[in-house]
């Protein structure tokens, strides 16, 4: 089946692929490099690639200007909390649809997904008013619930497709073995679905981390995550490229690192379990 490939051909493939990979990655690389330059070097003509005086000054300035750790903590709390909450609600729902399907299962699934198409801006004001009335504005709890709700359909769908791959006979065996529904889900289904759940969690942490409509519109100072942190650099003073780069790097670094370390699960997650 595998056929011998000439070294020449392989070298050519490698060259093309690496070049394309480099071009796609370049904006991120350039941002990271610029974050270590001085402001003058950042706008040097011609652009300086590697040979400049590396400095950490920008990071110090950014940290001083805005309390990075607080934004970071909010991002972690919001992304982690909303995903965890979503998983807790989605696992039973996905179990139902995958293992006790009815005629309406497909419709329910599609309807859930269609709620994701609801334009956020169309319902921004009522939500805003509701948040004011409930005292949830600029609170982590309120935003966490919103992020959970907007990602819930995706979480359910992903878990559903993963659960579908688990043979129903195994769950029936557990039932015959005397497992209660709780045991069945906790000791049999969940451990078997761990890779799928991990992928789901990863993808949704990323989606929640990067969500930039509700996080910008429903927070002020207290609950603002990194999306808001970076948005504060969009004002003209953000034109200081080096500081903008440092702030950008700080905003994306945690998720970039997480993503790279868990690449395998993530790729699985990215395909929404629907492509094999």
């Amino acid at each position: 089946m595998a056929r011998a490939v000439t070294t020449q051909r392989k070298t050519l493939n490698t060259l093309i692929a690496w070049s394309i990979g480099f071009v796609i990655f370049f904006p991120i690389l350039w941002t990271i490099l610029t974050s270590f330059k001085t402001e003058a070097q950042a706008i040097n003509d011609p652009p300086l690639f590697l040979f400049f005086d590396w400095t950490l000054e920008n990071y110090a300035v950014v940290q001083e200007r805005s309390n990075y750790m607080r934004f970071l903590w909010n991002s972690i709390f919001l992304a982690g909390g909303s995903t965890l909450l979503g998983i807790i609600i989605a696992v039973p729902a996905a179990w139902s649809m995958a293992f006790v399907p009815s005629n309406r299962t497909k419709d329910i699934l599609m309807w859930m997904l269609s709620t994701k198409m609801l334009p956020a801006v169309g319902v921004l004001y009522p939500i805003y008013i509701g948040f004011v009335k409930l005292g949830l504005l600029d609170s982590r709890l309120g935003l966490m619930i919103i992020l959970m709700l907007i990602n819930l359909p995706i979480i359910i769908w992903m878990l559903y497709t993963y659960f579908k791959e688990i043979p129903g006979e195994i769950l029936e065996a557990a039932r015959m073995d005397g497992a209660s529904l709780k045991d069945e889900i906790l000791y049999v289904l969940t451990p078997m679905a761990i890779p799928g759940i991990a992928s789901t969690v990863l993808l949704n942490v990323i989606l929640a981390w990067n969500e930039a409509f509700w996080t910008l519109n429903l927070t002020a100072a207290k609950a603002a995550p990194l999306t808001a942190f970076i948005a504060s650099y969009s004002s003209p003073e953000g034109l200081f490229f080096a500081k903008l780069s440092a702030a950008s790097t700080m905003a994306i670094a945690p998720i970039l690192i997480l993503g790279w370390f868990s690449q395998k699960q993530l790729v699985r997650g990215l395909t929404f379990g629907a492509v094999k």
């Binding site: 394309i20 990979g21 480099f22 796609i24 990655f25 904006p27 991120i28 350039w30 941002t31 610029t34 990323i206 981390w209 990067n210 930039a212 910008l216 990194l226 999306t227 970076i230 948005a231 650099y233 969009s234 953000g238 034109l239 490229f241 903008l244 780069s245 950008s248 905003a251 994306i252 998720i255 970039l256 993503g259 790279w260 690449q263 993530l266 790729v267 990215l270």
Partner: peptide, 21 residues
């Protein structure tokens, strides 16, 4: 890894970086 990377970048950051730099 290089090709996936942009997916991790939050929209605000990518917009700012593209716009300015």
């Amino acid at each position: 890894i290089l090709v996936i990377a942009p997916f991790f970048v939050m929209p605000t950051v990518s917009a700012l970086v593209w716009k300015n730099m």
